[in-house]
């Protein structure tokens, strides 16, 4: 039931990219087709590459990063909601108190700092040293997508 919460957010995020040539279709089609043995990372960036055929590469990458950021927000909200539910259940059923929501918030904050510092490190490795250097954008894209894969997997299990 709660999985339906994904849908409006994805529709919204698709609409938000209407102003440029970006569509998440290639990435989503690729993900729909991967088998269990295949690394989902092979699909990350597929939409940005398609978009870059007739638009500026950095703009396309920024659009796909925004797409994954939206998807991350949705997955995180879903997992947080369940954690809060379980914390509340423990209170109502007089079980041992728990704070899974707190642990999740802390994990997500620390992940954001890890992403920022990892991509800042990579930024120092490239000649231009600019935050929109292709390698730096790629760092944000892949780390964000991987966190989405993680939280979406948690959401399915929980």
């Amino acid at each position: 039931m709660r999985l339906f919460a994904f849908l409006p957010a994805l529709v919204l995020s698709t609409a938000a990219f209407a102003q440029d040539n970006f569509s998440p279709a290639e990435t989503e089609a690729c993900l729909a087709g991967v088998d269990r043995k295949t690394d989902k990372r092979v699909c990350v960036g597929a939409s940005a590459r398609a978009c870059a055929q007739d638009s500026e590469e950095a703009t396309c990458m920024a659009s796909e990063i925004a797409y994954w950021d939206t998807r991350l927000t949705v997955a995180f909200a879903l997992v947080l909601d369940r954690a809060k539910g379980k914390d509340d259940d423990a209170v109502h059923m007089s079980m041992q108190p728990r704070d899974q929501a707190g642990a999740l918030l802390k994990a997500q904050d620390s992940w954001k700092q890890y992403r920022a510092d990892t991509c800042a490190f990579e930024q120092t490795l490239w000649v231009t040293g600019q935050p929109d250097a292709p390698e730096v954008q790629s760092c944000h894209l892949y780390l964000t997508a991987e966190q989405v894969f993680y939280l979406e997997a948690v959401a399915l299990i929980e």
Partner: peptide, 19 residues
């Protein structure tokens, strides 16, 4: 800076897994 942030991320993520 990256490695320090990674350690904090590792510890917080694995504490969440434990939860």
């Amino acid at each position: 800076a990256m490695q320090r942030a990674w350690i904090a991320y590792r510890d917080a993520s694995c504490a969440y897994e434990r939860s």
